[in-house]
Design a protein around this nucleic acid. Sequence first.
DNA 1: GTGAAAGCGCTAACAA
DNA 2: TTGTTAGCGCTTTCAC
Lengths: 336, 336
Amino acid sequence: MKRDISIVEVAKKAGVSIATVSRVFNNSGPVKESTRKKIEQIIEDTGYYPNMLARELADKKTSLIGMIVHDMTGEGMPRTINGVNDILESSDYNLLIACTNGNLENEKRQFEIFKSKRVEGVIFATARFTKEHAEVIQKYSIPVVSLLQDTEMFKIPFVAFNNYDLGKEATKKLIEMGHTKIGFIGGPLQSANAEERYKGYADSLQEAGIQLDNDLVINGNFHIEDGYNKMKSLMERSKNITAVITVNDGVGIGAINCILDMGYKVPEEISVLALDETVLAKASRLKLSGIHYSYTELGKAGAQMILRMIENNRLEFEKYVVPYEINMRESTSDRN
Amino acid sequence: MKRDISIVEVAKKAGVSIATVSRVFNNSGPVKESTRKKIEQIIEDTGYYPNMLARELADKKTSLIGMIVHDMTGEGMPRTINGVNDILESSDYNLLIACTNGNLENEKRQFEIFKSKRVEGVIFATARFTKEHAEVIQKYSIPVVSLLQDTEMFKIPFVAFNNYDLGKEATKKLIEMGHTKIGFIGGPLQSANAEERYKGYADSLQEAGIQLDNDLVINGNFHIEDGYNKMKSLMERSKNITAVITVNDGVGIGAINCILDMGYKVPEEISVLALDETVLAKASRLKLSGIHYSYTELGKAGAQMILRMIENNRLEFEKYVVPYEINMRESTSDRN
DNA sequence: GTGAAAGCGCTAACAA
DNA sequence: TTGTTAGCGCTTTCAC
């Protein structure tokens, strides 16, 4: 095992003091050209590189950003991380990642570990953000940005999508296309984001003067099979449904599969519009219409925000809402 | 901004030396019950937690594993990382991740940054693994595990799938089902893994006494559209094709879409078998038959290997091949 | 049981 | 230009 060489040994070999070596390495302060050359040569020969721990300890600066993620499966998170990385790459910060599987205790523990590792900021990308999260965070003063959750009530800066608008716009769009019997396959009831999407749906109907029909609303989970099963129930309950909005694209695909299996046509008889569509939307044979969010943008914005907070040493609340995009493809039809 | 409190201040408040505080915190060495109680109380009150940088500097141990990833989009990598995390979670190592977008310079730089951050091991999950990678790695003596690439020739330990077997088994399976005109839509020519899959295909045909027909082989990329376009060319070139193997599931889905669009039936007229299928396989309406690898297992095995290397302080070459699983679903039919 | 003190490897203020 | 030295916050001998 080749031993790591320290600044002392470099200095010794060069016959100078460690201060001079440090100056050469960091270009901090004047050094005579000849000694600089000599030291550079020795650094080259020995393969010396500084021990960051020592440097960071002396500097009180780690250039480390911690990121707490609840789960990596699914389309969104990897892209988010990619976005974060894109930004960090051109800074010289490094990303420390912890995956917590949505366990609150885990999340608290990781945050404290990060804190003791002297990370300079933490990005939270958790499935839920509770008062307990806020309490732990506020115990330490360190820049924190939450992703995907509206944490305004805790005064924690965040970057997120506007789930309410998402539900509202999608519904409005279908209404404009002449639909009135619009089903809604929502997400799990505990999900704040899924709830917002539902609210948008309900409000949009109301604004258009359409009576909200509980038979047209059903809640499930986020997977393809959920979409299939829930669509089946929906169709059994209301025969005259002409469109359905699904909480995400997996559910949308499940719904399409179900409709086709039951012998109806998409989009001629029933339109399917997915919220929060990702690459899955293009994998299905019938290209799904959907509202699209860029998770990459989410990650980028989050990284930029935390970097800004670190640089300016500010902990004030701020927020950024990532815009969306409506992509009408093959699973929706205009009835007008 | 609440200031971090150090061990000195705790010691001062408790009227003891820092050594004693250290003993209490780490349970290293005897402390009188009463002083222990007092110190614990003060730790509690002040919210003291140790500065890991200082501890690590003194210990020469960071409990950090670096991971260099070329790209997070795509199904595999996130799952791999999840697997790594699963294992690290129950150790007390933390994961430092860098995303390099497949840029070699970037990868080298990151490795050196990791090294100077004193990570205890590095997991490489790059698209390609070149001699240059090996050289940089060998310059430093630190445990390294490569993922997805057979790095035996460089004596770098690795965990990977057996791409050759993959191609071979898939082909064999189709031959057993009575197919002889079997197409192959391969991956990019520069990809060593894609090449291995092709070799398996070719060898399998040969073993069955079937003449390799170059008209049945075509190379493309890994995406859905590639599958669509290449399948089209393939069908134009050979009218009597009855089955096709695709380098991955995205390409498989593209191929199915193309076949259906051209008015043929899947699997009655043409079977599609995907190598390296992931969740996409279930998203398509016609469930794709495929050979499946667990990326989670890949990540787990990689993490276990690096942990083992670190604990035992060994750098010897070793390898692990993750087993696969054949899932015959709806896109293949038996002609016998 | 407890404390003093010597590192760990580096930066930066101060002297020379 | 260069060297000396005092930290940074912690662990760990070695005495007492």
